[in-house]
Simulated assay, not measured.
Amino acid sequence: MTPPVPISVLVVDDEPLARRNLVVLLQGDPDIGSIEECASGAEAVAAIRRRKPDLLFLDVQMPECDGFDVLELLGTDGPQTIIFVTAHDEYALRAFEAGALDYLLKPFDDARFTRVLARAKEKIARYASHQQAPRRLVVKAPRRLLFIDVSDVDWVEAASYYACLHVGQEAHLIRRTMAELERDVGDSFIRIHRSTIVNLARVSGLELQSSGDYAVVLRSGIRLRLSRRYRQALQSRLIAAPSPA
């Protein structure tokens, strides 16, 4: 599958040498178009909102605003394809939970970079070929495939290298990132926490907790943690959304 070209890229790292290394490698690929650099997380947030790059190389450890902070600040405005760059492998799991396609562990060689970039281009091509959100999600189960209607999913949570689809009393693991699923399920879902997205039609209300935070209450009675960062967006969507039949 061939990605649309040219691919726009944003490289975010507070170390000039690290940024330069990535830029040089990217310039050697004929599918790469514009390449922009940012030296801080704050710069990255502004640049992503302004340029909307196809591909983001994002350093984890940066002063004041690190890579995870960048994605939380962006919410659904983040790029569809994100590759974390880190010198510490303990961030790998959290990177996948945050929606990263892959991560580069410093120092990395050209072969590793080439494999990661190939995966990124495949993902960009896949999204370019789908103009609408799919009506069904495919879940691989032992000796069978399950086809789950998106509208039947109550909520989705990050589960290590997988995501867990909650459908009524059932739960299904799917090897997709939260960022991928958030885009696939479309506008009928909304993120309420960095590791949770929920079907708006299943939300019955918000409940104030003793901690001062709110929980999202589903029609099934399940309560899900609501991050303060996403509360205003959720309330706006709930007010604007039509009542379910």
Rank of each mutant, 00 (worst) to 15 (best):
V12R: 06
K52E: 14
R228A: 02
V198K: 02
C65R: 06
I35N: 00
Q132T: 11
G99L: 04
R50T: 01
R115Q: 15
F68K: 05
V203S: 03
Y230I: 02
G205D: 02
Q61L: 11
Q209P: 00
F84W: 05
A92K: 02
R237N: 12
R191H: 06
Q169V: 15
S160G: 03
S211W: 07
S40E: 07
V150C: 14
A100P: 09
L74C: 08
L165S: 11
A92D: 04
A128V: 00
A240N: 03
E180Q: 07
L74Y: 02
A46G: 14
V60W: 03
E36P: 10
P63I: 08
P53F: 09
N21M: 15
E90I: 08
R219H: 12
Q169I: 13
A245H: 11
V5W: 04
P79A: 08
R50Q: 05
K123D: 15
Y161V: 10
V5R: 06
R143F: 11
Y230N: 11
L226S: 03
G168H: 05
L234D: 05
V11F: 00
P30N: 08
L218G: 02
G67K: 04
E157P: 08
E37A: 07
L26Q: 02
P3G: 03
G67H: 05
V9L: 01
A128C: 04
W155Y: 15
I222A: 09
K106A: 03
M62D: 01
V5A: 11
L145R: 03
R202M: 11
